[in-house]
Design a protein around this nucleic acid. Structure first.
Lengths: 198, 198
DNA sequence: CATCTCATGTAACTGGTTACATGATTCG
DNA sequence: CGAATCATGTAACCAGTTACATGAGATG
């Protein structure tokens, strides 16, 4: 009973990067460096990680017994340490995936903190900033719409991902596109209201 | 010259909570406890802070000379320490506000990390989770549409905020509503696609 | 000749969370 | 009678960032 409880709590804890790495490693064994590349290509829009943090987290995962590693000696290139999921890691990943989340993420959006206090700023400066943001979001929307699909398609052909895996990846891409469109529409609205004079 | 550079860098640094507190204190002098209430009422959807962190940050602001405090003795209630903006703090706030931001926030959305790896989960469990999220987002959309406007209206009458301040507050509310609607629409799409069988 | 890619790490720091400690008053 | 409100803080911990250190080979 005691053990059971402790295990459960352990599984629910949200150490996102740990689970993200387990998830990626469930596709294939990889080095920390490679993992960073995959993170950039796949989940970077909603979770980023620096290499230094990835290496530290991998060490932690190995201490947990959720991954194991071996060094591959290379010529002309640095040696590499390849990490692979263990059975225990596979179980931890499933257990995490099987928990139902009943709360929403609380997002930190520093630009909105700035925006909230724009009442005291020069109207022209405010418009300049808003237009910069609009253009940035617009560019990102374009990336989601035009560039990311190619990356997803390429990976699907590369058979690392199943059809079903690709469906969920594509869905996150779609959300990215929709979210950016929402930001652009909202900024357009705000800009127009301010230009009409508020 | 040297000084100038150092000053500039100091001002650009993004210590969000520090500036959020300065921004709130520019309306009126307040205690840490009160500030927490205002944060919850105003910017909580895009920046949260725990009381312990607020107290620590206020201490830091006082060391910077950006706020000053005095203790007010109360009967039947704990004494309170009231913080007020200093001139130097007002300058720091303006300097921060006057910087142009040319990069987008990078959002951390743990639920999307989970979602990304749903390909390996039981289809029924996936649908259950998606419907929970849809309902949560839908409830939040309702809050933004029906409840928040009342709070904003009440504060406007309470003359702490100018018409222009209220405009920007209302705009953040609108973005919240739009974002939640986007999430709901996206989740509906995904749920439908899965129910048709993917 | 410089920068990018591959590849791994450590150390110091910072901002945020959790848990703890205190204690009177008021409301349901 | 228990919970919420008012009110302030400290200590330990944890995840993430920045800066540093190393170094060969390929590309422009």
């Amino acid at each position: 009973m005691w053990y059971c409880q402790a295990d459960f709590l352990l599984e629910v804890t949200d150490l996102m990067l740990k689970y993200a790495l387990l998830g990626l490693l469930s596709h294939k064994a990889m080095t920390g460096y490679e993992l960073e590349g995959f993170i950039t290509a796949t989940i970077a829009h909603f979770w980023t990680a620096k290499l230094s943090q990835i290496y530290r987290t991998l060490k932690g995962l190995e201490e947990d017994g959720w991954v194991s590693s071996h060094v591959e000696v290379q010529e002309g290139k640095p040696d590499k340490r390849i990490y692979a999921l263990t059975n225990s890691g596979r179980k931890a990943l499933s257990a995490w995936q099987d928990t139902l989340v009943t709360e929403l993420d609380d997002l930190r959006q520093p630009s909105l903190v700035r925006f909230f206090f724009f009442g005291k700023r020069e109207p022209d400066d405010v418009l300049t900033q808003l237009k910069v943001w609009r253009d940035l979001h617009s560019a990102r929307a374009h990336y989601f719409r035009e560039e990311l699909p190619k990356v997803i398609q390429a990976s699907k052909d590369g058979l690392t991902y199943t059809e079903r895996d690709a469906f969920f990846w594509e869905a996150t891409r779609k959300l990215g596109e929709m979210s950016e469109q929402t930001y652009v529409a909202w900024l357009e609205e705000v800009i127009q209201a301010l230009e009409k004079g508020v």
